[in-house]
């Protein structure tokens, strides 16, 4: 069995993949749905979108702006979470790869 198979079969690696998948997919899919609600809202909820919330600012404008801030927030969350994955990766490579390679 070569190194890659060995790692692929290891509990640590499987756990890493599981926790990564549990993190990336729900967020990516929810974000996808959240964004695609936007054109539908513009088409089918025009009164709400055109409603003035503060002075001359409409609901639709603020709603549109939320996408930028949500995207940036998700980028921040990803960076924090990815650091914990980096640590796990380091443990795995140390255990299976560098030691085994020498």
């Amino acid at each position: 069995m070569n190194k890659f198979d060995q790692i692929a079969e290891s509990e640590e690696f499987k756990e890493l993949k599981r926790s990564k998948n549990r993190f990336i997919w729900p967020i990516a899919i929810l974000f996808f749905i959240y964004y695609l609600a936007f054109p539908l809202m513009a088409g089918y909820a025009k009164p709400l979108m055109s409603h003035f919330l503060f002075g001359n600012i409409t609901f639709g404008y603020l709603y549109g702006l939320t996408f930028y801030f949500v995207a940036w927030a998700l980028a921040g969350i990803y960076v924090v979470k990815a650091k914990s994955f980096d640590k796990k990766v380091e443990e795995i490579t140390e255990k299976y790869f560098e030691k085994g390679a020498s």
Partner: peptide, 18 residues
């Protein structure tokens, strides 16, 4: 400031978004 000035078909816009 209201939607619908340019895009009259929400499905087309949805498709663009995708």
């Amino acid at each position: 400031l209201e939607p619908g000035q340019l895009y009259t078909n929400p499905i087309d816009l949805f498709s663009l978004g995708m």
